[in-house]
Amino acid sequence: MSTTVTTRTSLRTSARRLTPGVLTAILGAAAALVTTQLTRVSSMLVAIILGAILANTRALPLRTAPGIGFVAKRILRVGVALLGLQLVVGDILGLGLGMVGAIVVVVVVGIGATLLIGRWLGIGLTQRLLIACGFSICGAAAVAAADGVIDADESEAASAVGLVVLFGTLMIPIVPLAGRLLGMPDHEIGLWAGGSIHEVAQVVAAGGAIGGGALTVAVLVKLGRVLLLAPVLAVVSLWMRRRTDVTRSSSRSSRPPIVPLFVAAFLALALLRSTGVVPTGVVDVVHVAQTVTLTMAMFALGCGVRLAALRRGGVRPLILAALSTAVVAATALLGVTLLGTA
């Protein structure tokens, strides 16, 4: 009986501690979603910016910190898992084996080059991994998902998210304009946008600007990169386990799992959707839940974007972000040119 009473007391205490921050994240997400309806700007992008503004104007009480941290970690993982139900493997394979191969090359080269360049710049491993995953796979969601595997410093995750927003947004007009200057047809520019731009929402914006049916192929290529989130995080987790074993004698419970639960759920839902048995109505409902949870999480991550911390971090992460963007864009352009019609 005493154990039950203690458990209930602990749960009530945790709920009271988390409630202010969780409610703040809900309100932030609601404001972002309303803004999206009025402006058509991505709710996740709005949420990140809104969170960053509140954090840097000191408008957030200290008592919100535990709940906001909970949303940035736990709720984010729910949103990433639900993202899997939006993927249909058959649609991605319909791009052709050449383009599928190009997607894999973009992710592998992007991550590998970012890690190497970051090492040359003297940037720590965890921050390099966050930037590599965010810029090579699917933006802020990949940063947060990778953070769930490697447990990086909060300021590193916030910095990586801020860089994704900055450089991904810059790519929205750059890719269509550069594609026109290179004389590429709309279809190929769409493939390039999907292979090079960081966030799904940013890809949608660029694809819509290109026109001529580019939006559909741009989103499919981007979703192909998203699908690689699960295997990449499994590899990263296994790598971190081995590093943990080598660098210190730790208990088995302290080692990260080979495949984190939320990554397994993401992959399982993607495979389930690909079978065609999930009703459209269920997919639509889950899409709403995924949008809300990820918007809440992006608001929480935005609250961790401290301009003072970014300034203290120096220019090296900014240089890495710029070079990573260039590598991913160049690799995607080469892949579209050589393999896009294969």
Rank of each mutant, 00 (worst) to 15 (best):
G179L: 03
G183E: 09
G183D: 10
M184D: 07
H187C: 02
H187Q: 13
H187N: 11
E188H: 14
I189P: 02
I189V: 15
I189Y: 01
L191M: 14
A193P: 05
G194E: 07
G194N: 09
H198A: 01
H198S: 02
H198T: 04
E199A: 00
V200R: 06
Q202E: 12
V204F: 02
A205E: 01
G207K: 00
G208Y: 00
I210E: 01
G211V: 00
G213P: 03
G213R: 01
A214R: 01
A214Y: 01
L215Q: 13
V217K: 05
A218E: 08
L220H: 03
L220D: 02
V221A: 08
K222T: 08
K222Y: 10
L223V: 14
G224A: 06
R225S: 03
L228Y: 06
L229P: 11
L229C: 05
A230H: 00
A230D: 03
P231F: 03
V232K: 10
V235G: 02
S237E: 07
S237N: 09
W239G: 12
W239M: 12
R242Q: 14
T244R: 13
V246M: 11
T247Y: 10
R248M: 12
S249K: 13
R252I: 12
S254D: 15
P256V: 07
I258Y: 13
V259N: 11
P260C: 04
P260Q: 08
V263W: 05
A264S: 13
A264V: 12
L267A: 15
L267Q: 05
A268H: 10
L271K: 08
L272P: 11
L272F: 09
T275K: 04
T275Y: 04
G276V: 02
G276P: 10
V277A: 15
T280C: 05
D284N: 15
D284A: 15
V286D: 09
H287Y: 09
H287W: 04
H287I: 02
Q290P: 07
Q290N: 15
Q290D: 14
V292C: 09
T293W: 04
T293K: 05
L294H: 12
T295Q: 06
T295V: 04
M296E: 10
F299H: 02
F299N: 04
G302R: 00
V305G: 02
V305T: 06
A309D: 14
R312E: 14
R312P: 05
G313K: 11
G314W: 08
G314S: 06
L318M: 13
I319A: 15
I319W: 11
L320R: 03
